[in-house]
Amino acid sequence: MSVRFLPSGDTALVVEFGDRVDRELNARVLRLDAALREHAISGVVETVPTFRSLCIHYDPLQTGAAELIGAVQSLLGQESRVRREATLWRVPVCYENQYAPDMAYVAERTGLSADRVIALHCGTRYHVYMIGFLPGFPYLGDLPAELELARRTDPRLKVPGGSVAIATSLTGIYPVESPGGWHLIGATPIRLFDAKQKTPSLFAPGDQVIFCPISRDDFNRVRSAVTAGGYRPQHGKLVL
């Protein structure tokens, strides 16, 4: 399968695999990412995997796009041999009203009961396509088709940190308070990003996530544990 090499100035080269939000395209992005990280090519500053492309940030004083295209092409044939490790996370979410200001809207627009929305949202194992927008913000998919809605036409100026939200075929979690245009259907007490940790972002691209409904009391208990430090949500290793 062919890829497109797109210039992004003289410090970045984009390797584009397609133009859809698609698990197979994303798997190819993540495989090339893993292969490039394993080979530590001189002049590559860092790589950023996104839905359907890999961005290679480089130092033009050390390398150039022509060399990088050559290096990528030689890796493209063999990147499937790279074993990729990932983590499966169980993320507690409270879907009660105070954390779900858009639940009524989502229920109305989808024609489903709130309970059904929650069951669908919790009944899927999501793939972390990429981290972006904010430190630690995971783009998770794919949402059950019944829950797909366009973004809000009027984005909120302040979405509370921890909000669990849906838009288009995706779901995500706002790590900190920020503006945002997705529909808020719950909140998690866990921390998604902590610069003081060895791996600051809880999730990495390629990880998997399952949401588990909790009560408001449990939410408060977990939040206290998070604040006290040392709380980590349930997780397990995956080899893909």
Partner: peptide, 29 residues
């Protein structure tokens, strides 16, 4: 577009058609 990575100095053009130069603190995607 389907969100992708952004390099410093990229000039993005939202629906209004007015270009925006992205500088040091720009979002990664």
């Amino acid at each position: 577009i389907i969100s992708d990575a952004v390099a410093t100095g990229a000039i993005q053009v939202p629906g209004t058609g007015q270009p925006i130069i992205l500088l040091a603190d720009h979002q990664t995607t």
